[in-house]
Amino acid sequence: MTTACGIRSRDGATCAEPIEPGAPLPLCTTHLLLAHDWVERTTGAVDLLPAPCAACGHPVGRRYPAGLVCERCDWRVGDVPDDGVTDASVDVVYYVRWRDRVKIGTSASPRRRLAVLPVEEVLAFEPGDRLLERRRHEQFAAHRFAGTEWFALHADIRAHVADLTIGVGDPWVLVDRWTSHRLAARA
């Protein structure tokens, strides 16, 4: 079994440093760090933004040698959004869970709206306005708590949410995509 790194330099010299214990590749510490730095320059390092993104409000970014960008929308930190970028709204019907209940509501600013609701989990979104919300309320009326937008967490609602989230790990990704499409359509 090899215990030395063995990486060859451009001039053909072999690295004789010991392999870093537990490393996923048979490299010494120096060469592992060089590989890490190269990957980080290429893919960026995840980092908190100094303030929420000016374009989408996301708090996490990626740090590159050329600067820091929002991880969600790639907006460069420090750039001022053009007029109309931050007010790009997309009407969505949202499904959120609190205990054994699901609220089906609508908003053009779901991040702001859901920030003030009792929410344990964001289940799904679908593009739509009050008309679609009304149709969903009628569709699931048998499970509705009278006079509210809250419904019992029933198998029918679970199945609908499952259909909306096929292939989606994070429902917010869809809202971001729809917002990006809206912005692109304005350009």
Rank of each mutant, 00 (worst) to 15 (best):
R182E: 14
D156I: 04
S107M: 06
T86K: 02
C28L: 10
D37F: 13
V116H: 15
G147Y: 06
C70E: 06
P110H: 13
P50R: 07
I157V: 11
H36Q: 15
L32M: 12
A54L: 11
Y95S: 01
F151P: 00
V69Q: 10
E40Y: 10
T106W: 05
A45V: 14
D156G: 08
G12S: 13
S107K: 05
D176F: 00
E133H: 13
V85L: 03
H143K: 00
R182T: 04
V80Q: 10
A45K: 12
Y64I: 07
P81A: 04
R177W: 04
A152F: 07
L49G: 08
E121N: 05
A142N: 09
P59C: 09
R158Q: 12
S9M: 10
G12L: 13
L49S: 08
C53I: 03
R8A: 15
A55Y: 00
A16P: 08
A55D: 09
V46K: 14
V69K: 07
A146G: 06
R97L: 14
D74E: 15
R134T: 09
A4C: 11
A45R: 14
L32C: 13
G84R: 01
L183R: 01
A155R: 10
P50G: 07
G105D: 05
A162R: 11
T3V: 14
D176N: 03
G12F: 10
A124W: 00
D83S: 05
R112Y: 03
L27M: 12
R72Q: 05
T14A: 14
T165H: 06
P21Y: 03
A4G: 03
V122E: 06
W150K: 05
W38N: 11
H36E: 15
I157N: 01
C28V: 11
R134S: 11
W150M: 04
A152T: 13
D170N: 11
F125S: 02
D91Q: 09
A115S: 15
P118R: 11
V119R: 04
T179E: 12
R99E: 07
A45G: 13
L183Y: 00
L114F: 07
